[in-house]
């Protein structure tokens, strides 16, 4: 009995306990590592990664077959197909991952247990954010890496820089959607509500806003500069236009509005898209942090 107690006492490393809370960065890294490890073991991660890679593979194979191995390099259906795929899969993955992050922990009591440790709420939020971001990065790299491998093997002339841009921008898109998901997660009462809301947000961003904008543009006879400005409000559109701009240094493929953007802003488009994307990353996360600091974790 007593010996057990002594051994338990000996488990401590003998440092004085007073004021031994580790720094913010250390805690964020610890929590991020935990979250990352947990994510890559989770079913959703495996499912999304496999789906992403397989669909990307299919797109690459089909377009390689269609070009008949002519090895031509340009912006083609491959890139378009991959952009389309990213637009569908990455936001869904990031939104649902983010939505589950806080709400399900709150539901399981994990959140209050975690917050009973010497950590701050911001550390928990950012730790989870970066951990999930790491998982999303892995997923995107594996998916697009597989596609690039197929394209290289099939002798396609796709530019490596284009693939790298696509990967990088997909990651930024994932970060923005993760922010939004985390915000939803801090607001939702239950994990199921959070996930449902995030799927709704996904539908809205992917389909509803674009279709609405299309209808609006026709009905209200929007000028092309208005159309372009409005489309910047949707992070998915920003991702798409940025990818095209990076791949081709020109948005003229997007018709008059894209031509207007290229001529009006030229290479400043990188900054414009960058600022929009950063806003979509930072603002929801900041609101999430405020909500998190005010809400009971129980």
């Amino acid at each position: 009995m007593t010996s057990a107690a002594l051994r338990l006492g000996a488990a401590s490393d003998g440092l004085p306990a007073e004021g031994r809370a580790p720094g913010m960065m250390t805690n964020i890294v610890t929590i991020a590592g935990r979250e990352l490890r947990e994510s890559v073991r989770a079913r959703w991660f495996v499912l999304y990664t496999v789906a992403f890679a397989v669909l990307g593979l299919a797109i690459s194979m089909v377009s390689a077959a269609a070009t008949g191995g002519s090895g031509l390099a340009s912006f083609g259906r491959t890139t378009a197909g991959l952009i389309n795929l990213v637009l569908l899969v990455v936001p869904l993955m990031a939104l649902t991952a983010g939505a589950g992050a806080i709400a399900s922990d709150r539901e399981r009591g994990m959140l209050q247990y975690l917050l009973a440790q010497p950590v701050s709420r911001l550390e928990v939020l950012l730790g989870k954010y970066f951990g999930l971001a790491g998982a999303l990065l892995a997923c995107i790299c594996l998916g697009l890496g597989t596609c690039a491998a197929v394209l290289a093997l099939k002798g396609m002339g796709t530019k490596p820089s284009g693939v790298l841009w696509l990967a990088g921008l997909s990651f930024l898109l994932a970060l923005s959607m993760l922010s939004l998901g985390i915000l939803i997660s801090t607001l939702a009462r239950r994990a199921s509500v959070a996930v449902g809301t995030s799927v709704f947000a996904w539908l809205t961003l992917v389909f509803v806003t674009d279709l609405g904008l299309m209808a609006g543009a026709i009905a209200l006879r929007l000028r092309i500069e208005q159309l372009f400005a409005l489309s910047l409000a949707n992070p998915l559109q920003v991702f798409k236009m940025w990818s095209l701009h990076a791949a081709d240094a020109s948005l003229d493929v997007l018709g008059p509005a894209g031509l207007y953007a290229t001529e009006e802003f030229g290479n400043r488009l990188h900054w414009i898209f960058g600022v929009c994307m950063m806003a979509w990353i930072v603002v929801p996360l900041a609101i999430g942090a405020v909500v998190m600091s005010r809400r009971s974790p129980v």
Binding site: G33, L36, R37, S39, V40, R41, S70, G71, L72, A73, G134, A135, L137, A138, C139, I140, C141, L142, L144, G145, T146, C147, A148, A149, L151, A152, L153, G155, M156, G157, T158, K159, P160, V163, L164, A167
Partner: peptide, 30 residues
């Protein structure tokens, strides 16, 4: 052919790089 084999090699290297990064994150996590 428009694409030189250099492009193929660079594309292959890009693919290896991306896969390596992804796998690195996974392994590091596991």
């Amino acid at each position: 052919s428009e694409s030189s084999s250099a492009n193929g090699i660079a594309l292959g290297a890009t693919s290896v790089g991306l896969l390596g990064l992804g796998a690195g994150v996974l392994l590091g996590a596991r």
